[in-house]
Structure formats: C-alpha cells, structure tokens
C-alpha cells in the first residue's frame, strides 16, 4: 500500500463560531484521488483544517487549490494569469516559464494563450482554473467542484487532466455534488455529514457498508446521510 500523504485523526475545527469539523479522521494516499462529499464547509474546510495545525507558509506551500469560483483575472490573458500566479507562488523566471507552458498544455489553451480570459467560454475558464491550481506542482491539490457549468468536452478534458496528475504521483482531493463524477474519477470516497466523516472507502465498500451492494454512489450517499435537506454552505 502507498504511503499516506494526509493522515488526520480526531480533527475538530470551528469557523466563525460554527463547528465545521467534528472529531474527523481520514487518510489519503499519495498519488490517489479522494472524493470528499458533504458540501464545501464540511469538505474543503476539513481539508484546509488538516493542514492548519502548523498553519504556516511552509505547509501552505504544499497545498494547491482549485476553487469553485473561477478565480481568474478576466482582463489578463491566459498566459498572464498563469505567469502571475506562478510568480506569486515564488517561482523564479525560468520555473515560471516552464510552469506556464505546462499549464497551457494542461488547460489545452496553447492556441489561445494570448487572448484575454473574458473572451473564453466557461469550459476554457474551468480548464485554466485547474491549470493555475496546479502551477506549483503541489503535493496535494484541493479541487472544489471543478467541473461546474462546463460542456461535456471540457469536462472530459478536465477528467483526463486529473488522471494525468494522478499518474504523475499527485494527490487530489475532489469535492463535487455530481456523484457520478466522483464515482467515475475517485479512488476512494469519504462521506461527511454534519462535520463528521461518516464513512470512507471505495464506492463498492461504501455500498456494502450501506447494505446496498448494487447501489450507485448517490444512493449510498443518501443512505448514509439521510434524505432531509442539507443546508450547509
């Protein structure tokens, strides 16, 4: 078994007087994609909190983020966006050039690199959003609903890119409300409910645990977390 990049035991975390994570324990292997289900507060906060104990820049430098928002500058070109974030993350000129070239490849935007982002389609922006998150080659990449609102081709490109990153030994934590995506992409899945990790494993393991071996991930999720409305942010 591969070593665990992220190992969390009994983690609790409050944010703005709200208990976002409650005594959660989780492991994530290096070079795997971990699907984390349960809304942003319960998932990304959990992942962020896992890196928080040290809380310093050195720890943050191991963490890449692909936020749900298109965290891009619309009036900069794709190349300028990549170059700015690369430089801001501390890459020197040579490393920036390399990272920008790799990012453009990853996003499939080599031909449009000098176009302003505001002229891009939603899918192109999503791909660039992912490429910026990966600029530094962080060990762990947090992806928050990276495929929201994209066309099937762009979604497919995104998934291929994520698999490429996994093949390169990168560890990804992937959150989404699209259960089929998670089932299709992730090696393991952790289900969070009310700040707790209520189950984790492969889809098959979770289905078995829920007592519905033939169920898909959405049915398993509903079985584990109940059918009442979830109003978490």
């Amino acid at each position: 078994m591969q070593e665990a990049l992220l190992a969390v035991t009994d983690l609790s975390y409050s944010y703005r007087e709200r208990q976002a994570v409650r005594a959660a324990s989780l492991q994530c292997r290096r070079g795997a994609i971990l699907g984390l289900l349960g809304g942003f507060t319960g998932t990304m906060t959990f992942a962020g909190a896992a890196f928080r104990p040290a809380g310093d820049a050195a720890m943050r430098s191991r963490l890449g983020l692909v936020p749900q928002e298109l965290a891009l500058y619309d009036d900069l070109t794709a190349r300028e966006n990549l170059a700015f974030f690369a430089r801001f993350q501390g890459l020197d000129a040579a490393a920036t050039a390399t990272a920008v070239a790799r990012g453009l490849e990853l996003a499939g935007l080599v031909d449009r690199q000098n176009d302003r982002v505001k002229t891009f389609s939603g899918g192109m922006k999503r791909r660039l959003n992912l490429a910026i998150g990966d600029l530094h080659g962080h060990e762990l990449l947090l992806l928050d609903e990276p495929s929201v609102g994209v066309d099937p081709q762009s979604r497919n490109h995104l998934f291929e890119s994520l698999r490429t990153l996994r093949s390169a030994g990168r560890t990804l934590i992937y959150t989404s409300h699209q259960m089929d995506e998670v089932q299709r992409l992730c090696d393991r899945v952790a289900v969070m409910h009310e700040g707790r990790v209520v189950a984790s494993g492969t889809t098959a393991e979770l289905a078995a645990r829920a007592g519905t071996p033939d169920a898909n991930l959405e049915q398993v999720f509903l079985s584990l977390t109940g059918r009442s409305l979830r109003d978490e942010a």
Binding site: A58, L65, L70, A71, Y73, I132
Partner: peptide, 14 residues
C-alpha cells in the same frame, strides 16, 4: 468577490 483572494491566500506567499 471573484475568488482570487482565496487562491492567493493559500499560495504560500506572505
């Protein structure tokens, strides 16, 4: 508001 702040904050830069 455009989400870049969070990305910048986790970048490791001061």
């Amino acid at each position: 508001d455009q989400g870049t702040l969070r990305r910048l904050l986790v970048s490791g830069a001061p």
